[in-house]
């Protein structure tokens, strides 16, 4: 059988015959739709896509994608995907994970995948709650969160997924929102084109256990007020009629009002490719309501890609030792003959 014609692919080709079983109204539907709409546009035959997931609501994702899929175990998707990508660099491997899966039980694999810069596309669905186990607080839940496991409020300070990723030296760090479809698709496309690990935090609403967790940026009214669309080479300007901007003040980033005709020279012009992750880290820290919520690609830099280097070492040795045979290996070291 020949490779699937890539040009003919449509969203429908990426929909599996399995009934989607997320709760009605779940943000996961929107993400699934955006992914199914994006993959046909990437110019790759369908059989080259693999979706690897861990455990949790988000991790049911592969079953609904008509690609190769691997629903692995809790927190370990980055490790499974790393082994796959190291041996099969021809595949485009997407990792689907959640806030609990990636940042609690799988925290170790998550950071090591990012520091190695394995060529994986990673979507972290952050709903700030454990959904599949019915509503315990997660490592991204705000302090004081009252859940079944924290009746008096949670005490753990939350992780900011972007900050964690930036702290590991990740080469591509972005954020989008489940229901912001055009934005999400554009970020997915950027991630698909990135060579190392492309990490996307997707703010995702769990309407059953943590409804409106991101209403500060997703509500119609808040959207225009609080969403800061970060774009390379453009100033950090946001709000109704772009009347606000971000500048660097003596105590860190600050919001500036920009009435018509105001001087915009102090507003930070974003550079996603700057080598140091410090500025991206600072930006990632911003949160509503005092600050806008940064969305888009905060960081995109080139660094050697792990599997390419691994394979490079192997090819180099194969080239240098062309005469290596199993026979020579068996007979290596000191040998003697008994006749």
């Amino acid at each position: 059988m020949t490779a699937t014609e890539t040009l003919e692919l449509t969203k429908k080709d990426f929909q599996s015959d399995q009934e989607v079983r997320w709760c009605p109204g779940c943000g996961d539907y929107a993400i699934l739709s955006a992914v199914q709409a994006t993959l046909p546009e990437l110019g790759l035959p369908k059989e080259k896509f693999v979706v690897v997931s861990g455990i949790g609501c988000s991790s049911r994702f592969p079953y609904y994608m008509n690609t190769y899929g691997f629903h692995s175990i809790h927190g370990r998707a980055p490790a499974v995907a790393t082994g796959l990508k190291m041996t099969r660099p021809d595949l485009q491997v997407w990792v689907v994970t959640g806030d609990g899966d990636a940042l609690s039980i799988g925290g170790n694999h998550f950071i090591h995948m990012l520091r190695r810069n394995v060529g994986l596309k990673v979507m972290l669905f952050n709903n700030r709650i454990y959904g599949l186990t019915k509503g315990q607080y997660s490592p991204t839940s705000e302090i004081g969160k009252r859940t079944k496991s924290t009746p008096l409020g949670s005490l753990d300070a939350p992780f900011n997924p972007l900050s964690v990723a930036l702290g590991t030296g990740a080469t591509f760090v972005a954020r989008s929102v489940d229901i912001f479809q055009p934005h999400l698709k554009s970020v997915l496309k950027r991630a698909a084109a990135h060579e190392g690990t492309a990490f996307i935090e997707i703010l995702q609403n769990c309407n059953i256990f943590n409804d409106k967790a991101f209403s500060g940026v997703t509500d119609k009214a808040a959207r225009s007020e609080n969403a800061l669309y970060v774009e390379d080479g453009k100033p950090l300007i946001y709000g109704k009629e772009n009347r606000r901007g971000i500048r660097r003040g003596p105590a860190g980033l600050e919001v500036v009002e920009l009435p018509e005709g105001a001087d915009e020279s102090e507003i930070i012009v974003w550079d996603e490719a700057v080598r140091s992750p410090s500025a991206a880290f600072e930006l990632a820290q911003l949160q509503a309501p005092e600050f806008p919520v940064p969305l888009g690609v905060l960081r995109a830099v080139d660094r050697p890609v792990y599997e390419q280097q691994v394979i490079g070492q192997i090819r180099e040795r194969e080239e240098a030792k062309k005469d290596a045979s199993l026979e020579s290996l068996l007979n290596s070291g000191d040998t003697w003959e008994v006749s």
Binding site: M1, Y68, F70
Partner: peptide, 12 residues
């Protein structure tokens, strides 16, 4: 994975 027409899902 990579084999045309055999797309399928595995898992625990």
């Amino acid at each position: 994975p990579g084999t045309p027409g055999l797309e399928h899902r595995v898992g625990g």
